[in-house]
Design a protein around this nucleic acid. Structure first.
Lengths: 147, 147
DNA sequence: TTAATAATAAGAATTATTACTATTTAATAA
DNA sequence: TTATTAAATAGTAATAATTCTTATTATTAA
């Protein structure tokens, strides 16, 4: 995680919870604190294991619910591995994706500017990059209308 | 899926299988054909349902194995929703991802060129875009060495 | 054609996630 | 403060997704 001031983050977290009328429970605070001390992209199970250290009998369900809630109010994001089932793409030519956060649909699109983006220097030497894709996230036309 | 010549695709498919010393079984061919006739990003279960139409008693396990195999030899790709557990990202400032196809690790990185990419016109009007991220895929330094 | 190898079906086992219910807790206002 | 009410929780059951195991069958290469 790109470092930031912890107090600021926590204040902003409290503000977001208040805005969405979420109670400030010690479980939520413990999970949030553990998340901002994390530099990788933990799974629910990993968060659960860490949360148990501070909160001996926190339930797995609470961790799942809390992570979903945090994701809903924009406190964290879900990343590659959005859950549900694996999805496969028979199109192997370069292209890009829009993913709807609501219906989880992925829409392919083409864009030559995106196709021609350079691989950053830091990855050119010791990494083998086989693919570059731009992922847009948001709400699709259909879901936007149904609100 | 961005259309392509079916015969070419199948020839290229046969070539890739041969190159990787994979037997050409009717199940594999049926699954491949069904995939290239698909315009979305099906889950394993969806592929299974379609495969059963041509192959009454194909097993679910075969579908899973076949999709993994196809993905390994580059006949298809996995997309957002890579399976395994959901992953969460406590970093909500714009940033980008490298994902190792081998160890599934996701590495954050910053890149101002990527940050400043424009949203394509087609998405500006009727879609609500909340996030743009570049996803690089390949093999990380660690996994590259261990081979 | 046949031996060696690889792939398959079927179903059991495992893992990830969600649902349910009784209980506890936090927020609010008297 | 304290009583009230709605929200959140723990514990556990249920469901869904994926992988594993084994006996059988199909493919390949000689």
């Amino acid at each position: 995680m790109i470092k930031n001031n912890k107090t600021d983050l926590i204040n902003s977290f409290r503000a977001k919870c208040k805005k969405h009328r979420l109670s400030m429970t010690p479980q939520r605070m413990a999970i949030y604190e553990l998340l901002i001390e994390t530099t990788d992209h933990p799974s629910s199970e990993e968060v659960y294991e860490k949360a148990k250290r501070k909160f001996r009998d926190i339930s797995l369900d609470t961790v799942y619910r809390t992570l979903t809630t945090f994701s809903d109010i924009g406190v964290i994001n879900t990343v590659e591995g959005y859950g549900e089932a694996k999805r496969y793409d028979p199109e192997i030519e370069p292209h890009h994706h829009f993913r709807c956060k609501n219906c989880n649909n992925i829409i392919d699109f083409c864009n030559t500017t995106y196709d021609n983006l350079e691989i950053p220097r830091e990855f050119r030497k010791n990494f083998k990059i086989t693919n570059l894709r731009v992922v847009l996230e948001g709400v699709c036309e259909k879901c936007g209308k149904n609100r």
